[in-house]
């Protein structure tokens, strides 16, 4: 009987008390050897050359973005499609100002938490009932064990 109870207690502890064991991997990174002065000078020159190229590219990008923005601003608004054409107009990409939420909110949530066509309903299950049930069961088991020990002690005295 004690063996059975031992197995039950062990199973309960393993079930309820199971936690994920995160591995920690450590290593040693040796410091880099000091480079000779001549090599450092060459590297500095190469870095300066790359920097100037990057500046040119960024300037071009800015001009390109400005021109693209200007052309978009001039484009007529086609969101309000006429309703009497007899042909269903495609829905606008966003039926409300979606950008305000997707742009401003931090991207901490999984994509499943955001609306998309053909998406699934979010998982709204909580661990609360499971926690409460597990806590109750484990407590009852604990009280039963202590009561059993007390009864056994009384029987032993008699």
């Amino acid at each position: 009987m004690t063996k059975t109870i031992s197995f039950a207690v062990l199973a309960a502890l393993l079930t309820v008390g199971a936690v994920r064991a995160d591995a920690q991997i450590t290593t040693v990174i040796a410091p880099p050897k000091p480079a000779p002065a001549k090599q450092l000078e060459v590297a500095r020159r190469q870095e300066a050359a790359r920097d100037s190229v990057a500046r040119v590219t960024l300037t071009d990008m800015k001009e390109w973005v400005d021109s693209a923005a200007a052309s978009l601003a001039l484009r007529p608004d086609t969101a309000g499609a006429p309703a009497d054409t007899g042909v269903a107009a495609p829905a606008p990409p966003t039926e409300r100002s979606d950008a305000r939420t997707t742009r401003d909110a931090p991207r901490q949530e999984a994509p499943a938490g955001e609306f998309r066509e053909g998406g699934r309903a979010p998982d709204t299950a909580t661990m609360l009932p499971t926690l409460a049930l597990a806590g109750g069961v484990v407590m009852v088991l604990g009280f039963a064990l202590r009561r059993r020990a007390a009864r056994s002690a009384v029987r032993a005295r008699h």
């Binding site: 031992s6 502890l13 806590g135 109750g136 407590m139 009852v140 088991l141 064990l145 202590r146």
Partner: peptide
């Protein structure tokens, strides 16, 4: 055996209380 049962019982009660 009784001591073991008492100890395990106390442990389980504490664990259950923590979960609750």
């Amino acid at each position: 055996a009784r001591a073991w049962q008492r100890g395990a019982g106390t442990l389980l009660i504490a664990l259950g209380a923590a979960l609750l």
